[in-house]
Amino acid sequence: MFRRTIPLIFAFVVGTFMVIQFFIPHPTFQAIYNGVLDWQQVIFGFVLVVGTLSMVRHHVIRIQRKKEGYRYSMVALLGLVSMVLAGIIGGIRGGPYKWMFDYIQMPAQSSMFSLLAFFVASASYRAFRARSVTATLLLVAGVIVMLGRVPAGEYIHVGGLSLTDISTWILDYPNTAAKRGILIGVGLGMTATALKIILGIETSYLGRGD
């Protein structure tokens, strides 16, 4: 009972309150609602700590067993510990924490994402092969948007319109139509899943076992 039923009742009460409060614009309900959101953030903070501990445990085991590439685990742990110490000692507004963010995390992260430009290029070769009418539409829309986003697009004209104008129109209308259709579907799907969670039909988030 305490392992499964009570958590489900707990979920039902919290979930139902969050739905109901939306329709009751009373200061008390608003205060509880804000409190629930704050508690949610706190729980997420603790989840992040547990996740980090799990990551540390994974790398420590790799180092202890001297698994292949265990030296990289040392580097990862060193990065983690130094960032945490930098934040504790110098604070998060400046000092070594901000320095490490500006000169280590940001450049490495944006370089990692920019690396995807090369892989996306090879993926686009495969995706953009005009084998059917629909694949041709994908190809044409992709090429127009890519050319329309660079300065050269301003100088290429088709039927009196520049590629930049056509690209903007594609993004504003057919692309928005597709996205809205998907978004409405996602919204309805999310609502159905949320209802299943609150009513205790969907329980996979509790994990297996009693």
Binding site: L48, V49, T52, M55, Y72, S73, V75, A76, L77, L78, G79, L80, V81, S82, M83, V84, A86, G87, I88, I92, Y97, M100, F101, I104, Q105, A108, Q109, S111, M112
Partner: peptide, 15 residues
């Protein structure tokens, strides 16, 4: 570089 990024990012979000 990959492992430095993993460690530093985890530390950043943790803090």
């Amino acid at each position: 570089a990959e492992h430095i990024l993993v460690g530093v990012s985890a530390g950043y979000y943790l803090v």
